[in-house]
Design a protein around this nucleic acid. Sequence first.
DNA 1: CCTTGACCTTCTAGTGACTGGAACCTTTAT
DNA 2: ATAAAGGTTCCAGTCACTAGAAGGTCAAGG
Lengths: 128, 128
Amino acid sequence: MNIGEIADQTGLPAKTIRYYDEIGLIQPARDSNGYRVFAQNDAHKLAFLGRARALGFSIEECRKLMALYEDKARASSDVKALAQEHLANIERKIRQLEEMRETLSHLVASCAGDDRPDCPILTDLAQG
Amino acid sequence: MNIGEIADQTGLPAKTIRYYDEIGLIQPARDSNGYRVFAQNDAHKLAFLGRARALGFSIEECRKLMALYEDKARASSDVKALAQEHLANIERKIRQLEEMRETLSHLVASCAGDDRPDCPILTDLAQG
DNA sequence: CCTTGACCTTCTAGTGACTGGAACCTTTAT
DNA sequence: ATAAAGGTTCCAGTCACTAGAAGGTCAAGG
């Protein structure tokens, strides 16, 4: 399979697939014309990567997950630890964003939003 | 005031303040020795920027907010629109992260986390 | 006066994970 | 023969800093 076909199959842009190749996440074979040739195993790996990325794992975390996936003697505790750490990061981000939402929604609600210049949003930003 | 003093006062790193100068968010005066000299107005602007950034506004949004702040003939509706758009972005991000949290926490809960290799997290990533 | 240390300056390069675009080659269809 | 569609590499840009190098300036102590 060529890169376009695999892109359609996995939903990943061809550019992204080339990038994953460049950083060594996948190692597709090459045809005599220089085109990348993707085997079923590459398709699997890319789908795996796509799902891990969709869950917010960083590229380096994906690299570790792939290594664990391919290590048939892994301990599930290693996978779980990685996922738990990532989950904690996500929860921290959510809390940060919720704080912002809290503050911002109050500010937005307090602003008349008309053609007069008085604006509690700006006042708050200016005064703290 | 020199950059270190203003950094202490605003809580922003000196590097960040230099960066804000470089991209034109502030225009501090210069002493004969080349040092930046910060007036009270610069301190105000930096505090304003710090708070806007803490609420997640992008640099470009901060630039617009500053312009509105300095335009005494602004309409508060312009400020409100900017803030509402940003609030919508934050809410979208929160929803995305919450989806990730949902999926991930289920996966983590289902993984034994022992020294055996069987792991539903990896199985899910592999199968979708 | 000299040195030491803290402070300031600019410049370059790196971060993460792509993305856009240029310049060029290969394949397929007409 | 040619045109379109696909592939290749390489370079630059994104965002908001941040690290570090090389060097100038200033205040205090010996």
